[in-house]
Simulated assay, not measured.
Amino acid sequence: MNLKQLEAFVRVAETKSFSAAAKQLYLTQPTVSAHIASLERELNTCLLVRNTKGVALSESGKELYAYAEQMLELEQKIRDRFGLTGKQSGSVLRIAASTIPSQYLLPDIMAQFRREYPEEQLKLFETDSEGVVEMIRSHKADVGFTGTVIEKGNCTYIPFYQDELVILTPATEQFKARKDADAASWFPEEPVILREEGSGTRKEALRLLEQMGIDISALNVAAVMENQETIKRSVSSGMGISILSALAAREEISSGRLLAFPLGETGGKRNINMVFDAGYPSLPAAEKFIKTVKHIYL
């Protein structure tokens, strides 16, 4: 097994075509086929299945693809680090971020980074906080941003921004009348729309509700949703109340379409964190990016 064979396999898996993979690699189609056949003989398994739509990964192929992709990315990192690519441009920095930092903080950070280091390229992946941590642990991302701390692996967290979570309700007279009431007295009575299981917003919201003395096991959960826009529209239409970042709902709050209530006496404060694996070799671009974040916020 060698990197050329793995590269051919990955390209066929991604393009779903032997001919397209051969064109990308500047090889003949028989050469690509030979690389795949050698891999299948060595691993004693079928990796690719031909069908009417092209080529699909077998179950063994899906497993190999996850490893092969990481190996090729690591090879590219080595080439970038030691100037073996023959390109004038910098490396590709992979950033994984949960919803709030991805949509409301990273655009300004990335713009500043590009002004300072125009030769560097950025690739952004948006997922939930749990997904960010998994991408850092599996080294599919170089730097991550999360709305909570998930203790897994050798992840190092640097809090750099303080966010505020608020209770969002429809802008009805019923909720306007509760402006001066303690939210803990009426929150448990309402249907609640929660973020998905791996969301940092969800984890922090439940933590804050517990601090307010609310039994989260007794919540009337109306729905679980991933998309913040869908959640806000559902709250506005009266489906239930929710807890989101004030950043995500600032337009709806300022326009009066939604009402915002604080979470407890101290408010729903939580940290937005930068996360990376300090024990894994990092690209110079990652170190520059971390430095940019610290310069802006710390």
Rank of each mutant, 00 (worst) to 15 (best):
M1Q: 10
E7V: 02
A8L: 10
F9Y: 04
F18E: 02
L27W: 08
E40Q: 13
R41F: 13
L43G: 09
L47R: 01
K53G: 12
G54T: 07
V55D: 05
V55K: 03
S58L: 12
E69R: 09
Q70K: 13
L72N: 14
E75W: 13
I78E: 15
L84F: 10
G86R: 07
P107K: 08
Y117W: 14
Y117A: 08
Q121F: 11
K123C: 12
F125P: 00
S129P: 10
S129R: 07
E130W: 09
F145V: 03
G147R: 01
T148P: 07
I150Y: 07
L165H: 02
L168Y: 08
W186F: 14
P188W: 04
P191C: 06
I193G: 06
L194W: 05
L194G: 01
L194K: 02
E197D: 14
T201E: 07
L208V: 03
G213C: 07
D215L: 11
I216D: 05
S217W: 09
S217F: 12
N220K: 13
V221T: 11
I231R: 00
V235P: 01
G238C: 12
S242N: 07
I253C: 06
A260K: 03
G264L: 05
E265K: 13
I272N: 00
N273T: 04
A278R: 13
S282I: 09
S282C: 12
F289R: 00
F289G: 00
I290L: 10
K294M: 15
K294L: 14
